[in-house]
Nucleic acid binder design. Structure first.
Length: 723
DNA sequence: GTTACTCTCCC
DNA sequence: CATGGGAGAGTAACA
């Protein structure tokens, strides 16, 4: 009897065979081993063949594995195959097993028949005006408004360069939809009157109570608002956010779990890959996106419900409107100040460079130009020409020219060249923050990505709709000379104020409650100087005897140990000898034994079920090898995620309650900013922000409250504390 | 043009 | 021997 499923693995080792058998065992409720046949290369008769890796796939198909992984396709010999990833890659990154498992389960669904079953697509890819209008009319119909199961998936294709919408896709089932075109090769598809009528109808549809779903709705919702002043009403489900909540990506970057529609579909649906077919009509691609999105809703919704993640999913959904608002509003830039700062930095840059060349020529006879931003050239200069002792990245033998290494060398040798290179680097970095494009209104914009991190914090990156500014606004310099950059970010109207509200020592408070350190909890409740308290515990001294230096050590060690920093790392942070750092660490752990005990319980939890859940109900599954790196990442997850979610929850609440009255400006993980607050309303604004930010968190049965601090300023640099 | 890598900015 | 979570600029090497 021929096997139903054939696994073509390519070359294997004992270890990869073991991993594969583990995988099959984990699927044993669905796959009977008697139905499976295994072979490294030799094709045999089977209903479905799973190919592991590019090499095996190439025996059957010219497709690239990264395009078609996890999809059912017809091989050259007519055989039905499902390509999956190479077992060799599984050895490198064990977290990939979740992907192979999904592909094996797909093979299981395909095992009883040998023919390729394609979805019965019914597309209107090149519709007439009448067809568009008819579809839109139907979409607003009672059926879609009243039937709780009815919903419409939508997706925009835009031309970034000309900032215009190419087409709008809509789907009302997993196989039926339309793509309404607007622009083809840069030219309008419709007459002006037709286009106006179409957009009016589209506006009606988006304003209607019909349930709408999308993958990464922030982009489509913000685009529709920016380009057409169309607001999306009753946005019911974002498949990307659902995926993010269910499977916070973990494991190696860019290799394992991704969040794009093609990948999510490959994991959950049974449709052919369509994303890489660039020769295909954009309209077809557009509708297929919508159909895939539509089809994903029900399985994702079921998973979210079953895993008890509805609350955290609803939080992420509620963030969409605030994120659209923040990204489209942007921040005002003082052009004069920008030019002034830029000029100063440019002058300083040339000055430093000149000094460097003078010194290098005098001391080392160097006459040719050196690119000080090139690590390669710098290594040559420092470690060969100048013969300085070679510095490596801690724990490795990678040669480095990093800031830390150069500082260390400077402390040792007092060679002015090192100091100048450091200054050169600093100024070059700052200069890059001035090199920004302003919008026609003199503003900069960023995109906040709700699904940007594994913790629930937002990430910030270049705005895809309004590509103005320096991209990530969560990394604008703050400390030292760099703070000058923030002076060009200014309040909307000069007579008004920017108000900043941030959680005080947020993550440390959460840690104190998690580990149950009563001294620390008491200190937070009484709003004591927490770094002094840490130092006092460490050095076993009364609070009033703590010197500023000891307080600084307390501050750094608290932050560092939350991520389980070692002695060498602490030595780097404190800029001291490893032996001294080691003594500090011992003193710290002696004064706070709860931390290590808590870390052990985290390790235990990971070993037993590989997942952690935060006080706000966010769950992260840790895939891959249970090693130190994973444990460290786990220690930081709960505090980081709790504060991220708490701030975003506060921000959404403020936006919903007071968004008409006050304009949100920025989000910085544990802080939010409001713009353009009149002098007379500062107190009112603060009261309202505070009312949205103070929450009673239950941690280990105790009530934990994170306090909030306020600052005001005319620009982002000169912020002074209020009260 | 894409990709890997280094370096440095934020919380 | 090993501090968590991000993004972007720049260089270098590849296609």
């Amino acid at each position: 009897m021929k096997p139903k499923i054939l696994l073509l693995t390519g070359e294997t080792t004992k270890y990869t065979q073991y991993l594969l058998s583990q995988l099959l065992t984990s699927c044993s409720s669905r796959i009977s081993l008697s139905e499976v046949s295994m072979s490294p290369w030799t094709p045999q008769e089977a209903n479905v063949t799973v190919t592991f890796g590019q090499e095996v796939l190439s025996l059957f198909s010219d497709e690239s594995l990264s395009d078609v992984r996890g999809t059912v396709l017809q091989g050259k010999d007519g055989r039905k195959i499902i390509p999956t990833i190479d077992l060799k890659d599984l050895v490198i990154d064990l977290s990939l097993d979740i992907i192979i498992r999904a592909d094996l389960l797909k093979a299981c669904r395909e095992k009883d028949f040998s023919e390729l079953k394609l979805p019965a697509w019914r597309f209107k890819s090149n519709p007439t005006y009448i067809e568009c209008m008819t579809y839109l009319n139907d979409a607003c119909e009672d059926r879609f408004v009243n039937d709780p199961l009815s919903m419409i998936a939508f997706d925009l294709e835009t031309d970034m360069k000309n900032q215009q919408i190419i087409c709008l896709g809509l789907a009302h089932s997993d196989s039926e939809g339309i793509s309404i075109p607007f622009s083809r090769n840069g030219e309008s598809v419709w007459t002006v009157d037709m286009e106006i009528a179409l957009w009016k109808k589209i506006g009606e549809f988006f304003a209607s109570p019909v349930k709408k779903v999308a993958h990464n709705a922030c982009f489509d919702v913000a685009s529709l608002w920016q380009n057409n002043r169309i607001w999306t009403n009753n946005l019911y489900f974002d498949t990307m956010l659902a995926w993010h909540v269910l499977y916070l990506p973990s494991g190696a970057k860019g290799f394992g779990m991704k969040k794009d529609l093609g990948f999510v579909a490959s994991m959950m649906l049974n449709i052919p890959a369509w994303k890489h077919k660039s020769e295909e009509d954009l309209a077809i691609y557009n509708i297929k996106d919508c159909c895939a999105t539509w089809a994903l809703v029900s399985p994702l919704e079921k998973d979210i419900k079953n895993k008890g993640l509805a609350e955290i999913f609803n939080l992420e959904m509620s963030e969409i409107e605030s994120v659209c608002y923040l990204s489209l509003r942007g921040i005002k830039i003082d052009l004069d100040q920008k030019n002034k700062v830029e000029l100063e930095l440019t002058n300083l840059y040339s000055e430093i460079e000149e000094k460097l060349y003078t010194l290098l020529g005098f001391d080392y006879g160097i006459t040719e130009n050196i690119n000080f931003r090139s690590p390669k050239q710098l290594k040559e200069l420092l470690y060969v020409t100048m013969g300085l002792p070679i510095q490596t990245v801690r724990g490795t033998d990678t040669v480095t020219t990093s800031e830390k290494a150069l500082e260390k060398l400077y402390r040792k040798t007092k060679n002015e060249v090192l100091n100048l290179i450091l200054q050169h680097r600093e100024v070059a970095k700052l200069k890059s923050f001035c090199d920004i494009k302003l919008s026609p209104k003199g503003r900069v914009h960023t995109s906040y990505n709700i699904a940007g991190t594994t913790s629930g914090r937002w990430s910030s990156s270049e705005n895809i709709i309004l590509p103005y500014g320096s991209g990530n606004l969560q990394q604008i310099p703050l400390r030292g000379n760099g703070s000058i950059i923030r002076s060009m970010y200014i309040v909307e109207n000069p007579e008004n104020w920017i108000i900043q509200a941030d959680f005080v020592q947020a993550e440390a408070v959460i840690v104190a409650y998690l580990i149950g350190d009563s001294v620390l909890k008491e200190a937070f409740r009484l709003k004591k100087d927490i770094h002094k308290v840490t130092a006092s515990m460490m050095f076993n001294l009364p609070l009033e005897d703590i010197s500023p230096e000891q307080r600084e050590i307390g501050k750094l060690i608290r932050h560092a140990t939350n991520y389980s920093l070692g002695a060498n790392g602490l030595a780097d942070v404190l800029r001291c000898e490893t032996s001294i750092a080691k003594r500090y660490l011992e003193a710290f752990h002696a004064s706070c034994p709860q931390l290590k005990r808590w870390q052990e319980t985290i390790q235990y939890q990971l070993k037993s079920n590989r997942s952690l859940i935060t006080p706000l109900g966010r769950k992260k599954v840790f895939l891959g090898r249970l090693d130190d790196t994973m444990f460290r990442s786990a220690y930081s997850f709960i505090p980081q995620s709790t504060i991220g979610d708490l701030l975003n929850k506060s921000l959404v609440k403020f936006y919903e309650l007071y968004g008409e009255e006050y304009s949100l400006l920025l989000q910085l993980h544990d802080a939010m900013y409001v713009d353009d607050v009149p002098e007379s309303k500062i107190q009112d604004c603060i009261d309202k922000m505070k009312s949205c930010m103070i929450w009673e968190l239950k941690i280990n049965g105790e009530t934990c409250i994170v306090d909030v601090d306020f600052k005001k300023g005319k620009n982002w640099k000169d912020m002074e504390k209020i009260k």
